[in-house]
Design a protein around this nucleic acid. Structure first.
Lengths: 119, 119
DNA sequence: CCGCATCCGATTGGATACTG
DNA sequence: CAGTATCCAATCGGATGCGG
């Protein structure tokens, strides 16, 4: 693990824009976040919700989000072991960003390919 | 060029969130966009504004943004050749997204490391 | 001045197999 | 169930040099 603070060595790490980008960086990160926006989820539930996502990458994303203080990890003592993840207050701050991404994406689709929506 | 629509083979390309992410993907893309938000910029002006960005990558980003219909490319006939780039109406749609990124990043910095702002 | 071609290193993500 | 370890393929970005 060469870099504790992030996976992408960005030009201006102190810029708030870069901080936000780092938080959602990764091919699956926004989808993981979307699941957690709905509430607490166990490792297995996340795997079931995102079948194409390998356990390794899911672990990496979760660890990274936890390292940034965006998700909280909680293990049940019983058996079988259950680990659940949930957004921290800091992680909740990402909600309006995901909304903005959705709205911008929708606007782009409407502008660059109007009428090309699914039936 | 294996993929015409984007550099990152994302899981759900049709999702508006992914569309928006694809638009700002790339280590320097948001910084290039910020320059263009201020108005039309020539290739050299962009290079001067972002000295650490190589010409190759700048060209790649510009071409990609142009391919997505987000920036417009305009060449002067004279000499020396001058090429200026400016945001299209579609590109202007990214402005609120950049604002959201900035606001979210600021909020994250305040939450996870309060008081740690530059003096 | 603007841009492309080539080569190369670093990073990321996926497949598979194994462990507590 | 919830990871970890290893290997591998694809992608991205940087450096350099040439062309229009």
């Amino acid at each position: 693990m060469p870099d504790e603070r992030g996976r992408t060595a960005r030009p201006e790490p102190d810029c708030p824009v870069e901080v936000a980008l780092a938080a959602i960086a990764g091919r699956w990160t926004t989808l993981v976040l979307r699941e957690l926006m709905h509430g607490s989820r166990s490792f297995g539930e996340l795997r079931a919700a995102l079948p194409a996502l390998s356990a390794k990458v899911l672990t990496e994303r979760l660890r990274e989000l936890a390292a940034r203080g965006l998700v909280d990890r909680r293990r049940t003592a019983g058996f079988p072991v259950r680990t659940s993840y949930q957004l921290t207050p800091a992680g909740q701050l990402l909600r309006p960003l995901l909304v903005a991404l959705y709205q911008t994406g929708t606007a782009l689709l409407d502008t660059t390919m109007p009428g090309a929506r699914g039936a």
